[in-house]
Design a protein around this nucleic acid. Sequence first.
DNA 1: CGCCCTTCGATTGTCTAACAAGTACACAAG
DNA 2: CTTGTGTACTTGTTAGACAATCGAAGGGCG
Lengths: 228, 228
Amino acid sequence: MSRVSAVSIVEAIASDIRSRVFSGELPALHALTETEVASSYDVARPTAKAAIEKLVAEGLLVRGVHKTARVADLGPESVRDIYQARAYLESEVLRRLASGKAVPEEAVRANNDIAALKTGAPLDVVEPDMRFHTSLVDALGNERISKMYLSLVGEVRLCMSRVQSLHLLDTNLIQAEHQRLLELIEAGRGDDAAQLLDEHLGRARERLVAAMGGEAGPEADLTSKLTD
Amino acid sequence: MSRVSAVSIVEAIASDIRSRVFSGELPALHALTETEVASSYDVARPTAKAAIEKLVAEGLLVRGVHKTARVADLGPESVRDIYQARAYLESEVLRRLASGKAVPEEAVRANNDIAALKTGAPLDVVEPDMRFHTSLVDALGNERISKMYLSLVGEVRLCMSRVQSLHLLDTNLIQAEHQRLLELIEAGRGDDAAQLLDEHLGRARERLVAAMGGEAGPEADLTSKLTD
DNA sequence: CGCCCTTCGATTGTCTAACAAGTACACAAG
DNA sequence: CTTGTGTACTTGTTAGACAATCGAAGGGCG
């Protein structure tokens, strides 16, 4: 019986389940029955139902009609879809930022944090990395775009919770590419920044796909994939 | 007592309320209490509650804690946010389509439909216009991007329901700019297409803002009149 | 006379209990 | 081995109820 209380019981339960999914405590395809959730949090079934439906709307859980909700099982095609969507959004963000030569301070800070951590724990890079990308998007100041990106970030974290060995990318390489992106923004070279980001995300995407057991797609060839 | 039955009662009620909001039958700030919805559709209150919460999640309704749900009142800043988000998304879409010189057939059809309607009813242009833009986004084949755009379209339609006199837009002008966009895609000139779209949406945005009582920005009359 | 405080109605958040309907799995029959 | 059936589990929906909270109306006091 976990105790949670915040602004709303439903939100508190949803938040707790969300973190348990991200931490990997609830593996993919794990079933989440309404009565089970209700009893484990000591609430009524409708409350548990609301929390589950909230997470289903976020994409963390999936369920069909009259079927138990399960932790989403994101296959390689989903990973590609998510990272492609990220690329679409962030490419345009970089162009707009570059056209104003606006380098977000928070992004600089986040990348410095990446450079600072010399620990071998591969998981520690995820948080500042996400903060870097999120701060770029937020710098646009568009409420809806930020919200959209937030939902993508949630799914990205869900992907990563499935891969224990996150030694997919070298920390130094990540930090260097981020630095380059910031420089391109400052130089007003939006097109180059967008292209670099495409490679940056494309590489991460295919590494992640491979780590998840999916057939490692033909590495990049970013120009031919747009209608596919 | 309206009769609705489809796949899910909640979804059916939400869908009906949605269309009533779009049609303007439910004006901005109109209150929608749970009991009121429940009795009008002859369902239990939790069912009505679920439908309302679904629409709140979509952004069509707004409500604070312990406050009755109301039809969203989108002010000028919200309209700008929405149209800016559209511009960000669609700009990148156009670039990607142009890089593959892929002109979606459905977009061509939709634009032909705009050209075909010579009726004076200004409302008739909304549907094919939305279909034009949506088909461009859908042509990317990215599930999440399409879903994001769909939610934006919903809010755009909500904006339009607030403006009775949709005579802001000249049908011929819209059709001509759409045609030009398609030509630029076919020519592979992504940057030019993105820029034209920015102007296209920017003017529409400021015209809509002005029609809603806000103060139009400088983009309102760059060349000639049109609204999207 | 006007302002602050209290009170009250209305509305939402949540609970308990229950029934109906659908799915999934096992088990038996052909 | 396939097919059909049946039972248990789960979800969809309803009803009624109580507590918490918000908004507004009304009374007390400066």
